[in-house]
Structures are given as C-alpha cells and as structure tokens.
Design a protein around this nucleic acid. Sequence first.
DNA 1: GCGACGATGGGCT
DNA 2: GCCCATCGTCGCA
Length: 193
Amino acid sequence: MLPRSFYHRSTTTVARDLLGKILVHEQNGGRIAGMIIETEAYVGETDLACHAKAGRTKRTAQMYGQPGFAYVYFTYGMHWLFNCVTEDEGFPAAVLVRGVKPLDGIDIIAARRKPIARPQWTNGPGKLCKAFGIHGAHHGTDLCAPNSNLFIEDNDPISDFSVTTSPRVGLNTVPEPWKSMPWRWLVTSNIAR
DNA sequence: GCGACGATGGGCT
DNA sequence: GCCCATCGTCGCA
C-alpha cells in the first residue's frame, strides 16, 4: 500500500509516478486489481480545469483535505470518476485515474462490463469505476488506512521511454493555457496491454 | 474506422 | 437553467 507521503507531493509528480502502480478494491472477499496506465493532474484553484476553480464547496471539500484520500464524483448523469487527493492539506488538488489494465478479479470485471469487449473494460475513467465497483460511497475513503479495502499498491516504476504526455481530455470550454497543459500521462508500451 | 449525438442528474449561478 | 474531468450507439465509409 502506498504511504501518505507518496501522495503528499506535487500533483504532476504523483500523476506521473502512479503509472504502473496497482489499484486494488477488495470487496466480498474478492480482489479486483489493475495496473494504472493513464492519469491526469488537476492542480488548485488557479487551474481553470480543476473543480476547485470555484473555491471550496460541499463537492470539492475533499480536495482540500489530507493527501491520500479518494475524491469520487458523479458526472454526466451516469458516471462515477475516481481521483486521489494530493499535496498539502488546504491546497485543492487531485489525480484522476483514467485507465487501468485488469490483473485480478477478471471474472467480476467481465460480469460488470458485459457485453463490452475486453479492451474497452477499463480504458476510461467512468468505465474503470463501473468495472471496479467504485461509486459515491467511496468518496472520502482513506487510501492509506491499514484496513482500507480501496488502496494503491507499489510496483516497479515505468520508464520514461514508455510514457507519453498530452493535454487533458474533455476540457472543451476551459480557457488557455489550462486547456493545453500537458497534464495527462499514458503508458504507451505493450505492458499496457 | 470515425464523427455526431443523446442519455441523464448533481452542482452551481 | 446551463454546464459538464463520459460512454455507447448510430449512420456512413
């Protein structure tokens, strides 16, 4: 399990270093796990793509809390998205997990994602939340608590040669320079498949 | 393979 | 009442 100190760093560093780590959800005695292969960073009230741009509200309060907690929110009327809170308590920032490679709990993931084909099981932030069973009840979960059933495990780092950055996705009405900041990280080598 | 678009509900002005 | 850090389907090539 990654310690709180992992999340207590700059958000862009955490987003980069989360590549290759293992997202784990243990429920009903079963283990669902996947290697993180895509992330995005959302950094503070000045980042006009970040939900915290409007300041502290009931929804964004979790981003102002301690690092290492889950920020889970609902969007487009049907999708849950999973983020990890980063940086100092009081500074609103988080990393959105956008894609994982399924490792454990394949049968559970398959059942939840049926009849979709395997490559599309967890290749999007809404998709992986459905596959892992992550939803509003997990908002505010401490990913670093010893007894947590939702956490991230350490794993071998991913080489820079296997990593690509790009602008963040879906920011259609966000002004520059925020719209084009290269704050999306992807594993592009074949280990992501 | 690819672009357009509708679904659907909470959050915020 | 408008805006989404999305997804799956549809029509067309």
